[in-house]
Design a protein around this nucleic acid. Structure first.
Lengths: 187, 187
DNA sequence: TTGCTCATGTAACACGTTACATGATTGT
DNA sequence: ACAATCATGTAACGTGTTACATGAGCAA
């Protein structure tokens, strides 16, 4: 239900093509809401039928034409409606394959599980590094995705920081957790 | 792709009905992998067609008949195959509506956002309490879901503890994170 | 010359959600 | 009397994934 609102929310900053919208997703809300390119194209089509967005073709000389989408007043209305209504769910449905495997880990050798947790730590440590870089570049990247047409508000930056902070904190915690698990396994 | 393996993994302990499987999901892997009853019924049907599970009807006097599902050798094989193969993804796709709203929070008044974060904290504190209780009851509940036919291994309990511990740790962290966000908002 | 980026999508399938249908028994 | 639990599912819809198709330009 919320891919819709994610798209409307981003269009609310500035018009953009489907292709660039995907890149914007990856750079901004990716650790909050994921979407594939084909999902985005489909959803844009639906939103247009429903009258929440409009589109027009922009011709380019050397490259393929681009179809630029824009949010409509009606779209702004439903977006704000969604944003204002208080949600009944603060916890989202969980689908974590790594944890599912761990749940059934009694079917494996302890040494295998240990190796598995070590891989997990490796993986998390790598994303920690990329976070540090991302954080510095993020606002620039977001602006670039909008072709520098849009200025972000001070508050936008504040909330982006909140989100990145949460991702960093949990990441660090998970590394700690996995280390403790390994320790316990070794006894 | 992994509802399949979640179901096979649980059937690997003991035969069970679809209805009880749902309850078992809720009591055990719910904070790792969620499934609805109709999903479970459908998936059991598919798994039976594919030959990974078999079923037989058990008649009961006072209550409706129950259809008990059992894992086949082929099913055990694919389950172990999945469990042993090393996954390329340690991070699962994210779909967190609460965080998506926060991303767009610059469209709201700061006071609203604050109230919103406070609700989030409330919510998390409640689940903290229920965790404490759950942890004590969990193994009992899991055994009960299998009609006490199955003894859990020592290691099963170990990995269940790992999972609950992670949930507790992240929960606590998120409360801390939200408090820090509120503080920053107040400046 | 091989592959990446730009740019658009369609089609088929897999998975998840919501609503509906049935009907007996047990607890408040 | 009313709601919850036991127990099975179907149908329709909504969302997510994967593979395919097209075609120009640019860099190693």
């Amino acid at each position: 239900m919320s891919l819709k609102h994610g798209i409307l929310g981003l269009l609310n900053y500035s018009p953009i093509t489907g292709y660039n919208l995907k890149k914007l997703f990856d750079k901004s809300i990716n650790n909050v809401w994921t979407a594939s390119l084909s999902q985005i194209y489909r959803e844009l089509g639906t939103l247009e039928k429903e009258g929440y967005v409009t589109s027009h073709i922009e011709e380019q000389e050397d490259r393929p034409d681009r179809k630029v989408y824009q949010i409509s007043d009606e779209g702004k209305r439903v977006f704000m409606e969604w944003l204002t209504e208080s949600p009944d769910t603060f916890v989202s449905p969980k689908r974590d394959e790594f944890m599912l495997r761990l749940f059934f880990a009694a079917n494996l050798q302890k040494s295998e599980v240990k190796r598995y947790l070590e891989q997990f730590i490796d993986n998390r440590e790598k994303t920690m590094k990329s976070f540090d870089e991302d954080q510095k570049k993020m606002q620039k990247l977001v602006k670039a995705a909008f072709d520098n047409k849009t200025e972000l508000k001070e508050e936008d930056e504040l909330y982006m920081r909140f989100i990145i902070k949460r991702a960093q904190m949990t990441n660090q915690l998970l590394i700690k957790w996995a280390r403790e698990c390994i320790e316990e396994l070794e006894n």
